[in-house]
């Protein structure tokens, strides 16, 4: 390598380039949203469990992931299933953030958010999650009851699987579905969280 090439390579970063300015990235995201180029917008929302990843399409909220879920995998899933035009862009998820804040502060009992079911596989799983979305705040159903509302009372195991792969937990309240006999049942995000959410709603209802 010549001296000139060494010079070209070295002083550059240190002196005038410290990465892409945040303002440039913000302006880009804002313009991409304004021009309707973002198929899937995502960002973070605060919660008592830590920062949640939330993603929304033009149709509505499509995904909510707990903090331990690896972002890279989440984005790849969105790219594969919906569109590769996935961008971190805050505007579209602002309402989601706001409603989640209110929910965790017990100032909101129902979410007024449109939902996009495209990450749900299969008609029965969709029916199960729609039935779950209709369970009122502070109330619970059993797996069997949810399966019944989805059209197949005997398919409670399949209902459990559908709930386990709920792409929009909290907002689609799969924590409100319990084992018959009073047990908690399962929860993909961990039973502690299921208990926390149920307690939060009970406390507010009381």
């Amino acid at each position: 390598m010549s001296e000139l090439e060494r010079q070209l390579r070295q002083p550059y970063d240190a002196t005038i380039h410290a990465g892409v300015p945040q303002a440039a990235l913000d302006a880009l995201a804002a313009r991409a949203e304004r021009e309707g180029l973002v198929e899937v917008a995502y960002g973070q929302a605060d919660s008592p469990f830590g920062p949640l990843t939330v993603a929304a399409t033009e149709r509505g909220l499509v995904l909510l992931a707990y903090p331990e879920v690896e972002l890279e995998g989440v984005l790849e899933r969105l790219a594969r299933t919906i569109s590769p035009r996935v961008l971190e862009a805050p505007r579209r998820i602002d309402p989601v953030r706001r409603e989640l804040d209110e929910y965790f502060e017990r100032r909101r009992r129902e979410f007024d958010l449109e939902l996009d079911w495209r990450l749900v596989r299969g008609g029965f799983a969709t029916a199960v999650l729609e039935a779950t979305a209709a369970i009122p705040y502070g109330e619970t159903l059993t797996y069997r009851e949810v399966a019944g509302r989805a059209g197949s009372p005997k398919a409670f195991r399949a209902a459990g699987n559908g709930l386990g792969s709920n792409p929009i937990p909290i907002v689609v309240p799969c924590h409100r579905v319990l084992a018959s006999g009073g047990g908690l049942g399962g929860y993909t995000g961990g039973l502690d969280r299921k208990r926390t959410l149920l307690d939060l709603e009970r406390g507010a209802a009381a």
Partner: peptide, 20 residues
Amino acid sequence: MSLPPFQALLDAHGAVVHRF
């Protein structure tokens, strides 16, 4: 063929494009 999420491109190549 599946394209990576656009944000992954921005994260990986934003700096070199800006520097360029």
